[in-house]
Simulated scan of single mutants.
Amino acid sequence: MLPHRSKLSVAVFLLPPVLLYGAAVLLPIVQSLVLSFFSWDGITDMQFVGLSNYRHMLAGDSTFWTTFFNQLGYLAVCLTLQLGGGLAAASLLASLTRGREILKVLYLLPAVISTLAIAFLFQRIYSMEPVGLLNGLLGAVGLDGLERPWLSETDTALAAVSAPEGWRFVGLYTVILYAALLAVPREIEEAARLDGANQWQIFTRIRFPYIRPVWITTTIMATTYALRGFDIPYLLTNGGPGQASELVTTYMYKTAFTSTDFGYASAMSVFIVIECLVAVSLILLVLRRKAV
């Protein structure tokens, strides 16, 4: 559809980012795939073991499955906060007439704060001694019985490390969804109001169907990022107590750089890539089917 000269120009401009993407993303994935068929401690010669790493991961390593189900819980909390909170905040912004710009800046602040700062912040929030913000608020409203060391108990550690990650990117998805809501034709909404539709009906029948493509994109972004989540859980608990907040990513890191089993860690990295691809496929299948 483009003239030959235009095609050549497009190819010239696309070549550098494609090469960069291949070198920075695709090549490491291929290297991890190859390494997953070997046993290697990083020093001695690599030994080919075939599918042994994958067999051990799927059938012989109970810790891996613990981390996998922890990852699903982590994903559920992140999606609830990021997508649910982002959509609610975006709808609120769309209904305001003043102060939108200030709120957008405030929503986006967590996304630009360093991960280390967020980890230290939530360590103070969850602190039991000295009393942190969360326990202080519970005590102030008479719920002293709910005060606890949130990062040190097995029942609460996973949720405690998931919440900061969810909070961190609420603002990003809020702004994306807010921009999508602004593109909804107001004439259609006004016509629906004249026909007697309430706010919920306008949202479910007009606004959300209109922003569905953006919603699919944000769901994919939030899901894949949560499945690759590492930094905040690692900084807050290092996977503890026990394995209560251990994720596949943190377990992979420890396997590679603490146990120096790079072949097995590569097998887990390949699993994470496949996990993300399967998640994206399911999202597209479910959300696009509902749109038909």
Results as ranks from 00 to 15, higher is better:
residue 207 R to L: 00
residue 235 L to T: 03
residue 210 Y to W: 04
residue 183 A to N: 13
residue 243 Q to Y: 15
residue 38 F to T: 13
residue 229 G to V: 03
residue 139 G to L: 03
residue 15 L to S: 09
residue 54 Y to V: 09
residue 250 T to E: 08
residue 105 V to Q: 10
residue 190 E to A: 12
residue 267 A to H: 02
residue 116 L to C: 03
residue 286 V to I: 07
residue 291 A to T: 01
residue 174 T to Y: 02
residue 53 N to S: 09
residue 176 I to E: 09
residue 28 P to V: 04
residue 114 S to Y: 02
residue 143 L to M: 15
residue 152 S to D: 13
residue 267 A to C: 07
residue 246 E to N: 14
residue 106 L to E: 03
residue 234 Y to E: 11
residue 72 L to I: 14
residue 222 A to T: 10
residue 12 V to A: 10
residue 221 M to H: 06
residue 21 Y to Q: 03
residue 138 L to V: 01
residue 71 Q to E: 14
residue 191 A to Y: 04
residue 292 V to W: 03
residue 46 M to G: 13
residue 27 L to K: 06
residue 63 T to W: 13
residue 103 L to K: 00
residue 102 I to F: 09
residue 231 D to I: 00
residue 140 A to M: 01
residue 209 P to L: 08
residue 164 P to V: 04
residue 132 G to H: 06
residue 65 W to Y: 11
residue 125 I to R: 11
residue 57 M to H: 05
residue 25 V to M: 10
residue 128 M to C: 04
residue 109 L to Q: 06
residue 46 M to L: 15
residue 47 Q to M: 07
residue 200 W to L: 11
residue 89 A to D: 01
residue 259 S to E: 06
residue 191 A to S: 05
residue 188 I to S: 03
residue 48 F to L: 15
residue 92 L to Q: 03
residue 178 Y to M: 01
residue 220 I to W: 10
residue 168 R to T: 11
residue 217 T to G: 07
residue 88 A to Y: 09
residue 174 T to S: 11
residue 164 P to A: 13
residue 277 L to T: 01
residue 271 F to D: 06
residue 40 W to C: 01
residue 14 L to A: 14
residue 116 L to A: 04
residue 30 V to H: 09
residue 233 P to Q: 15
residue 136 G to I: 06
residue 95 S to R: 05
residue 233 P to H: 15
residue 175 V to E: 11
residue 142 G to K: 08
residue 188 I to A: 06
residue 192 A to V: 05
residue 250 T to Q: 12
residue 249 T to N: 15
residue 225 Y to I: 14
residue 14 L to V: 00
residue 253 Y to Q: 05
residue 41 D to L: 02
residue 181 L to P: 00
residue 154 T to E: 15
residue 142 G to S: 12
residue 186 R to F: 03
residue 130 P to V: 05
residue 271 F to G: 06
residue 74 Y to E: 04
residue 238 N to V: 07
residue 177 L to W: 12
residue 245 S to D: 15
residue 22 G to F: 04
residue 2 L to D: 01
residue 47 Q to H: 15
residue 9 S to D: 07
residue 237 T to S: 15
residue 184 V to C: 00
residue 110 P to W: 12
residue 233 P to F: 08
residue 176 I to S: 09
residue 27 L to T: 04
residue 58 L to R: 03
residue 130 P to Y: 10
residue 216 I to W: 09
residue 207 R to S: 00
residue 93 L to R: 01
residue 128 M to R: 07
residue 55 R to T: 00
residue 197 A to W: 06
residue 8 L to M: 10
residue 138 L to F: 05
residue 133 L to H: 04
residue 72 L to V: 12
residue 75 L to P: 02
residue 283 I to N: 08
residue 60 G to M: 09
residue 57 M to Q: 03
residue 111 A to G: 10
residue 114 S to C: 07
residue 68 F to L: 14
residue 9 S to L: 04
residue 155 D to Y: 13
residue 257 F to I: 10
